[in-house]
């Protein structure tokens, strides 16, 4: 198993945000995690990445069998974990090419990945368009030669053409190369391109649904919103 999260409870300050998360991802599998705003999806990404802002009060995170719950972020990345940021910060003065020189574990052809040649000579995320930020995130995580990639709202702010472009890169460079993928998404549109094996729904800091047929879950959410998922949990009748 690439990733196993066991009964994970997390606080930010005094507020409990994650309330007992369980999640398993096998090698080469693509999973999806859907949820409404403020359900705790981005917190889960940051906690898996080891952001010290969040405190794990219970449970464990295992990566390829190693307990990484207390490891610093950079150690987790060295083991093969990679995450993309929903709103990556600007790092003024640090050119994207310079950052790639520092972090790359494998050579990459940035133009093949859809990057404008000029993007490499610009400061990381400074005045990047929404699409450029996504491509920059993709280039960086692919260069890490990861075993598992977690995409935090990689689809947000992209029109359908750009979404298709980004999805094709993810498929070709990661999924087709047997890299495990967890796609965190609010809208779910990207799943029609990536076709995950398992879809999970997270509401109020808990995963309340795990389902193989992602189309069924998407259809339900589209028609009834996440309220139906809450109801589903309460009545255990499936969406």
């Amino acid at each position: 198993m690439v990733l196993e999260i066991k009964d994970l409870k997390v606080k930010s300050g005094e507020k409990e945000i994650l309330k007992g998360i369980n999640l398993k991802i096998n090698p080469g599998e693509t999973h999806a995690l859907l949820g409404p705003n403020a359900s705790g999806k981005s917190t889960l990404v940051q906690v898996i990445a080891g952001n010290p802002k969040y405190k794990v009060t219970w449970g464990n995170i295992l990566f390829n069998g190693t307990d990484i719950t207390k490891l610093p972020t950079e150690e987790r990345i060295k083991l093969g974990l990679a995450i993309t940021w929903q709103n990556p910060p600007t790092i003024k003065g640090v050119k994207l090419s310079k950052l790639l020189d520092k972090i790359s574990k494998q050579g990459i052809n940035t133009e093949e990945l859809g990057a404008n040649p000029g993007i490499l000579d610009r400061s990381v995320n400074l005045n990047f368009s929404g699409g450029e930020k996504k491509i920059s995130e993709l280039i960086q995580i692919i260069s890490l030669n990861p075993k598992l990639v977690i995409f935090d709202e990689i689809d947000s702010g992209l029109d359908i053409k750009k979404l298709e472009k980004v999805s094709k890169i993810i498929k070709k460079e990661l999924i087709d190369k047997n890299v495990s993928v967890l796609v965190i998404t609010h809208s779910g549109e990207i799943l029609n391109f990536l076709k995950p094996k398992i879809i999970n729904v997270m509401v109020d800091g808990k995963i309340i649904c795990e389902e193989k047929d992602y189309t069924r879950v998407l259809k339900t959410i589209k028609e009834y919103g996440y309220e139906k998922c809450r109801k589903c949990e309460l009545h255990a009748d499936g969406p």
């Binding site: 990445a49 950079e74 060295k78 003065g93 050119k95 520092k102 972090i103 400061s123």
Partner: peptide
């Protein structure tokens, strides 16, 4: 910024060096 660079595999000293040189 530090957390972002750590999430790319750099340790704190490496991340600070990169930010300082960029600045």
């Amino acid at each position: 910024e530090l957390n972002y660079l750590k999430s790319r595999g750099l340790n704190e000293a490496e991340a600070i060096e990169l930010i300082v040189n960029g600045f």
